[in-house]
Design a protein around this nucleic acid. Structure first.
Length: 646
RNA sequence: GCUGCCGUAGCUCAGUCGGUAGAGCGCGUCCUUGGUAAGGACGAGGUCGUUGGUUCGAUUCCAAUCGGCAGCACCA
């Protein structure tokens, strides 16, 4: 037992019986039993010695049970309301559950209301969940006979060793591995259906599209209410909303997937660019600039034309008399271009590593459904670099990259980063031996730097595996930002070489790496992370000088000018409005500092400083105020000072 | 790209069971000079995403198309 005690029972005693033998209240509260760490039905006989824990609604495991069972309850509700609908799969997920249905008619928002009402009825009926073991072939035949093709297919594809189990709840039953709660009543009423969306059968776009209904489910109404409130709060930090409210950028349909940066947004962009450029300068990078358009021959040589061509923008430059077209490609990546610079002149092993950086503007023809605010766009600028080095230099370069990368994320306020290692995709260039070497190289680099990571088979770039640094946006979606990719393929395909110590030509290794990923995506993430309330050094408008009376206008102008001269981004608000309105408006637009000046300040040559989110005022002489603000507005320096670069 | 929903003033949205539209905020003018989250009055603003069809008549119904949102698929 969890408290360390040992209890003895006859073989075949159920979890329910164990709970009952301990306490009546425990028997009542019991939802499932954890046998050697695996959650199982309360009614299942326990056949051997094991560590045992009774799962109640207090335990974290209960949420998953509630959500999974809510999916079953929803499936029953749907089939009773819409006969002929086929059921497929319905798992518990973060914050809730979903179930995929096959039905010709779409579910409408009204349908969701009806389904939800039906679910409450089913919960109230409190039918016990009962488990049955079926013969495999019989199960397939049965599900086919009642028109459940998908269920039959699931069983057919289960490994032969798998026990086929059916769970009943009243009249309704479903193929399911379990475990389940004792009865539908235990699901409770703290659930809500959220949305309907399409989802491909088995996640493959070649398969038919099913209708997925998403729901959220919690232990108590209070938890549900908190979750819904949290969603509302998250919406307020959404970069698309804040981008508009704060006048940072916009997108419009004539340039779908591209960003119009407004003055304030562009100031933010340039501030970030200046920061990261200083970081790169200090880390031994050289910066370059390369063209947007290239003849198709370059992308054919690199492999992009074949492997990535569907996502590239192609332009017909001319048509020859014989009808052959000359095609140009807009670069989707900077790597082929950087190899061209590397290839100019002979390179010696003494030149390596070369860390070639570019704030490279790329275009990718992303599927329309993939576009999302400024987080997923068709035109973006990467803080890209390619490190040309020898194989021996890889571990050290990787370590330096990780240090730089993590330092930047820390400076910018991100402490929760998910690290993933994306392995070879189906469509790829290079031999399996080369991939083995590259994948193992990155694994070791990660381990050597003490980074915990998750492996993602099949997700790598066509030329190499990649380490991905993921950040989570306001609505819980995960986005790849930084990346480190180890590439033995492109140097070969684009014939990059250096002269080694032995006087012979050798292939360099290429490390593709980005820290922010793209400015667009990263700024979107920063907006959400800070909810628009940027630290002083990043804020597009650092302070507003607001007048109380028009007599203070000249002093306000003087204050603003002095601030700007000192390098601060300051605006003056001398409108004929009350100070209440000015404070409100600049607070809503998230300006970090207000310098309020009225008659007293004008007379004494002072300013009243008011910080965003605080009601307190601090009256200071102008010089002192500026000195304070300048100190505060200095970008984070990290380990090595980057002041000189500013 | 796929499924569903959506597209009305600068913004957020209401509305028209087919007879060319309305609110709040914002904007402009005027009054107000007010000490830390909305002072007041008046006024201007829209061929209802685009194209086609049905109709005497379309913002409203239908279709196509473009874009947005959610999810899926994709994401070098």
């Amino acid at each position: 037992m969890p408290d360390g005690s040992v209890r003895t029972y006859a073989r075949g005693t159920t979890g329910a019986e164990v709970a009952a033998s301990i306490a009546k209240s425990l028997a009542k509260a019991a939802l499932a039993v954890k046998v050697d760490g695996a959650v199982r039905d309360l009614a299942l006989p326990i056949e051997r010695d094991a560590s045992l824990e009774i799962v109640t609604d207090k335990s974290p495991d209960s949420l998953e049970l509630i959500r999974h069972d809510a999916a079953h309850v929803m499936a029953e509700a749907v089939q009773s309301l819409y006969p002929g609908t086929q059921v497929t799969i319905g798992p518990a997920i973060a914050n809730g559950f979903y179930y995929d249905f096959a039905r010709d008619e779409p579910f409408t928002p009204d349908d969701l209301v009806k389904i939800e009402a039906k679910m409450h009825e089913i919960v109230n009926a409190n039918a016990p969940f009962t488990r049955e073991v079926w013969d495999r072939d019989e199960a397939i035949r049965h599900f086919l006979s009642i028109g459940e093709k998908y269920k039959a297919e699931i069983i057919r594809d289960l490994p032969g060793t798998e026990t086929i189990t059916i769970y009943r709840q009243g009249q309704w039953y479903d193929l399911c591995r379990g475990p389940h709660l004792p009865s539908t009543g235990r699901v409770g009423h703290a659930f809500k259906l959220m949305k309907v969306a399409g989802a491909y059968w088995r996640g493959d776009h070649r398969n038919p599209m099913l209708q997925r209904i998403y729901g959220t489910a919690w232990r108590t109404e209070k938890e549900l209410a908190e979750y819904l409130h949290q969603l509302e709060e998250a919406e307020k930090r959404d970069h698309r909303r804040l981008g508009k409210e704060m006048d940072l950028f916009h997108v419009q349909e004539e340039a779908a997937g591209s960003v119009f940066w407004h003055p304030k947004g562009w100031t933010l962009y340039r501030t970030l660019e200046r920061y990261i450029r200083a970081k790169l300068d200090h880390a031994g990078y050289v910066e370059v600039r390369t063209p947007q358009l290239y003849d198709s021959s370059l992308f054919k040589a690199s492999g992009h034309w074949d492997m990535y061509g569907d996502n590239m923008f192609k332009i017909r430059e001319s048509v020859a008399e014989d009808g052959t077209e000359k095609l140009l490609g807009v670069k989707p990546m900077n790597c082929p271009a950087h190899v061209q610079i590397f290839r100019q002149g002979l390179k010696s092993y003494r030149d390596l590593p070369i860390r070639m950086a570019e704030f490279g503007n790329c275009h990718r023809n992303e599927p329309s459904g993939a576009l999302h605010g400024i987080l997923r766009v068709r035109n973006f600028t990467q803080d890209d670099a390619h490190i040309f080095c020898t194989e021996e230099q890889v571990p050290d370069e990787a370590a330096q990259y990780f240090k730089l990368q993590l330092g930047v994320y820390k400076d910018l306020g991100f402490d929760r980063i998910a690290v993933k290692l994306a392995l070879r995709p189906d469509v790829r260039a290079g031999s399996d031996e080369v991939w083995d070497k590259a994948e193992e190289g990155l694994r070791q680099a990660l381990r050597a730097n003490g980074l915990e990571f998750e492996e993602l088979p099949g997700e790598g770039a066509f030329y190499g595996p990649k380490v991905e640094f993921h950040l989570t946006d306001a609505i819980g979606r995960s986005w790849q930002c930084g990346t480190l990719q180890l590439d033995f393929v492109l140097p070969e395909r684009l014939d990059a070489s250096y002269i080694g110590q032995d006087g012979a030509r050798h292939r360099p290794v290429m490390l593709h790496r980005a820290i922010l990923g793209s400015f667009e995506r990263f700024i979107g993430m920063m907006i959400e992370h800070y909810a628009g309330k940027f630290p002083l050094w990043l804020a597009p408008v650092q302070a507003v000088v607001a007048t109380i009376v028009s007599d203070a206008d000249p002093w306000a102008a003087e204050v603003a000018a002095a601030c700007r001269k000192a390098g601060l981004r300051v605006e003056a608000d001398t409108r004929n409005e009350k100070i209440n309105l000015k404070v409100r408006e600049h607070s809503l637009s998230k300006v970090p500092v207000m310098l309020v000046v009225g008659g007293r300040e004008a007379e004494n040559r002072t300013v009243a400083i008011r910080r965003l989110g605080s009601q307190q005022q601090e009256v200071l002489a102008l010089d002192a105020a500026i000195a304070n603000l300048i100190a505060e507005a200095r970008p984070p320096a990290g380990g090595d000072s980057i002041d000189s670069a500013f």
